[in-house]
Design a protein around this nucleic acid. Structure first.
Length: 279
DNA sequence: CTCCAGGTTCCGG
DNA sequence: CCGGAACATGGA
């Protein structure tokens, strides 16, 4: 296998691939193997130098969003100790630029599931319904297209441990495959309009829409509020026993974390998830 | 066994 | 607008 250098960008590769944005990257030798769209890609860091299999340079630098100015982004964060602690914990983590459908669909399957479960579901869906991709005599699979999924029966998806999410995923796939929902058109809309359009789809509420926008539509201000973020915001930014309604939370998040709120959110999420002490 | 997980939707105050 | 409840599954 021929590897090509992409230089030495500020990038915490493992942190980025394992931070609950994408769910399919697997360790392979000294690096990581996965699919970017319909291409098998191998990524590895050696002494800070980023290496990728020849031919995948553009796909990899786009997917890893090496063009995001991390230092500038971090400089826009609020100076409070909570955010700064998360920032230092997540230094070098990037928000991936994932394919629209893949980002949307994986988060439709994410509701009330632990990250490990979402990964399991992603792998099962890929294996059963995705396109096989060869890499060094090994086979991995792309994420199933809307068309491929729309052709399935709900029972096929239920058999992948999707539970009640099966109907939502199938319904969304059908609407995207038929063109009733056009993700490329949605990508042209304003943040708010795009969020509203995504929320027309079954199983897509405010949180899933914001995840899709952040991880698949380059909306770096989108701020998904999940149970972890809610926990952090409530306990570290509000007084005990203070009333914090969903509207309060939404307004606070929208105004407090600046133009790259999504980045701050991802750092707060990851830091909380890995360091939270129970009790 | 019980509790909870990167929620959404619907329904009654 | 707010809080509750139903919805599936598996790991801790």
């Amino acid at each position: 296998m021929k590897l090509v250098s992409l230089g030495a960008p500020l990038l915490a590769l493992e942190l980025t691939l394992n931070s609950g944005q994408a769910f399919h990257w697997k360790r392979e030798g000294g690096g990581w193997l996965g699919a970017i769209g319909e291409a098998a890609v191998y990524l590895e860091q050696r002494d800070g130098e980023l290496l990728v299999n020849a031919g995948a340079e553009d796909a990899a630098s786009n997917y890893l969003a090496l063009d995001h100015p991390l230092e500038e982004i971090a400089a826009t964060f609020p100076q409070d100790p909570v955010t700064q602690e998360a920032l230092s914990f997540c230094r070098g983590m990037r928000i991936l630029r994932q394919p629209h459908w893949e980002a949307l669909a994986t988060f439709i399957t994410s509701s009330m599931k632990q990250v490990a479960h979402i990964a399991q579901i992603s792998h099962t869906l890929r294996l059963r319904f995705g396109r096989p991709l060869e890499w060094e005599g090994r086979t991995l699979h792309s994420y199933p297209s809307p068309k491929a999924m729309a052709a399935l029966a709900e029972a096929d998806l239920r058999a992948c441990a999707l539970g009640y999410r099966a109907a939502n995923l199938l319904g969304s796939a059908q609407r995207v495959a038929s063109g009733e929902a056009n993700l490329e058109k949605i990508a042209e809309l304003s943040d708010l309009e795009a969020q509203m359009a995504l929320r027309e789809l079954p199983g897509v509420g405010e949180k899933v829409a914001n995840c899709a926008l952040l991880f698949g539509f380059e909306r770096l201000k989108a701020f998904p509020v999940d149970v972890w973020i809610e926990r952090v915001i409530r306990e570290r930014y509000f007084k005990k026993r203070q009333k914090v309604t969903p509207a309060t939370l939404r307004a606070f998040c929208a105004k407090s974390f600046g133009p790259y709120g999504g980045y701050a959110q991802q750092y707060l999420f990851h830091h909380a998830r890995l360091t939270w002490k129970k009790g």
